[in-house]
Design a protein around this nucleic acid. Structure first.
Ligand SMILES: [Zn+2]
Ligand SMILES: [Zn+2]
Ligand SMILES: [Zn+2]
Ligand SMILES: [Zn+2]
Lengths: 133, 133
DNA sequence: AATGAAAGTGTTATGATATAACGGTAAGTT
DNA sequence: AACTTACCGTTATATCATAACACTTTCATT
């Protein structure tokens, strides 16, 4: 959100769908939403192209371990995002990695590796699911 | 390696293929190897079943961002593995996360999240590729 | 306003990754 | 032997993602 770049209609539709869902959706799950189909998006590629742009803008992140996409719930961030993913309810919590990514970059440097980006996905149980046994 | 569980023939073949490759391979890349086909493995599911077992044993890890699998090059580890992945030559470096995963678990706990595991994949440039401009 | 470059789109087809369902086999336990 | 568990082969199918092509929209420059 909050980035002032004019999105095309397709991009707006996909962005709205993800924001509205409040959880990760696969490209095909997005495609199957009524609100998406009713707006004329009916081919996978249409969805993927919108997602590609939205990810480039940082408004959407890809969750590798789910092959899914989620709306960013932070302001545009320079630091890479990271996620906690509940194995029970599939909810995700985005958290930022200001100090963490610095420490990882340093660690990588010790192996002669020049860090450009990272994906961190923590799996486990969210507060609600953990307390429900 | 180094874990004394008796592997089946299929599992041995897949494990050997990955160890020999020394880099991540997709299930279908494994399937296409002569040494694999010559041993009678000829269906994707055969590969996936062997991989599933090898991952459960911790002898193989999945690289989410590549949809690929790689032989573990550490002794069996309790801490989750993490990887640096070169964007140029696709080589991977496994590193362990003893202190890091503790710090991440603590961070997760502050969000009420109970960490069970994690995937950390750092992208960038390995020493060889970085020095070659 | 005309021109031209860059980005976006629709459509069709295809490629790449992963699992379901079934019945059968091998090996260990009692 | 009877039972259990893991494993296997085969076929079909589900799921995720991109290639190729022709066309349109957008917008800065002239
Ligand atoms: Zn974000
Ligand atoms: Zn949950
Ligand atoms: Zn390992
Ligand atoms: Zn490299």
């Amino acid at each position: 959100m909050a980035k002032e770049v004019k999105l095309t209609r397709n991009q707006q539709v996909v962005m709205a769908a993800l924001t509205d869902a409040g959880q990760p959706l696969s490209a095909y799950q997005i495609l199957d939403l009524e609100v998406v189909r009713d707006n004329g998006l009916k081919a996978p590629l249409t969805i993927y192209r919108a997602l590609e742009k939205l990810m480039a803008l940082g408004q959407v992140h890809r969750i590798e371990s789910l092959n899914a996409f989620v709306a960013c719930d932070h302001e545009p961030h320079a630091e890479p995002a990271a996620f906690m993913i509940c194995q029970d309810c599939r909810c995700t919590i985005e958290f930022s990695t200001t100090s963490l990514s610095r420490s990882i970059a340093r660690h990588a440097g010790q192996h002669g590796f020049q860090m450009a980006g990272m994906h961190l996905e923590v799996s486990g149980h969210c507060e609600a699911c953990a307390s429900a046994h």
